[in-house]
Simulated assay, not measured.
Amino acid sequence: MLPDLHEEITTQAGPEAVVDLELFFDGNDDPASIGCNLADHPGPARFYEVLSAIRDRPEVESVWVGITEVMDADEWPFSDHVYVVTTASPDDVRSWAGALDPEEPGDSWWHGVPPLREIDVPPSSRLVTLWWD
């Protein structure tokens, strides 16, 4: 829940904190926490549903939420991007996330360097960054 999320974020120094889907979405009912500029926001529960389905695909190693901004202790942190470690193409990943209307996917870390939390990207896989403006 929210206190656990804030605690995990504070343990990660560096350019950004990254957290797993369950930690970010468990108890999250704040549409401003992710994809907040979407005209027809599907809600955090739908984000979780789509992103966890992506994570469960055989071509996917992991999915991580990058934390963009930390709010007050009683507010959900804000994210505008997630990382998908996969053998699939960026276009495939974007199509899987179509219900969330992401921008054109990227292929690098949000801040140009990996977060301090180690995210394994095997040699046969790539990093795909889904983001929302």
Rank of each mutant, 00 (worst) to 15 (best):
L2T: 10
P3C: 01
D4G: 10
H6R: 06
H6P: 01
E8T: 15
E8W: 03
T11S: 11
G14R: 12
E16V: 11
V18F: 06
E22Q: 13
F24R: 05
F25K: 04
F25G: 02
G27T: 11
D29R: 15
D29W: 05
D29S: 14
A32S: 12
I34D: 00
A39K: 14
D40M: 08
P42T: 06
P42E: 02
R46T: 14
F47G: 01
E49M: 05
V50H: 04
I54Q: 03
I54F: 08
R55N: 04
D56M: 11
P58T: 10
P58L: 08
E59F: 05
E59M: 09
V60M: 05
E61R: 15
S62L: 01
S62N: 11
V63R: 07
W64E: 00
V65H: 05
V65I: 15
V65Q: 02
G66E: 08
G66W: 05
I67V: 15
I67P: 02
I67G: 06
E69P: 00
V70R: 12
M71Y: 07
M71D: 02
A73Y: 08
D74I: 12
P77D: 05
F78W: 14
F78V: 15
S79I: 06
D80Y: 13
V82W: 05
T86N: 05
T87H: 08
T87G: 10
T87R: 14
A88K: 07
A88L: 12
S89G: 12
P90H: 10
P90T: 10
D91M: 12
D91Q: 15
D92N: 06
S95F: 08
W96Q: 06
A99F: 07
A99W: 01
A99M: 00
P102M: 02
P102D: 01
P102V: 06
E103H: 07
P105A: 03
P105M: 03
W109H: 04
W110L: 06
G112K: 07
P114F: 01
V121T: 10
P122F: 10
P122N: 11
R126I: 11
V128N: 01
V128Y: 03
W132D: 03
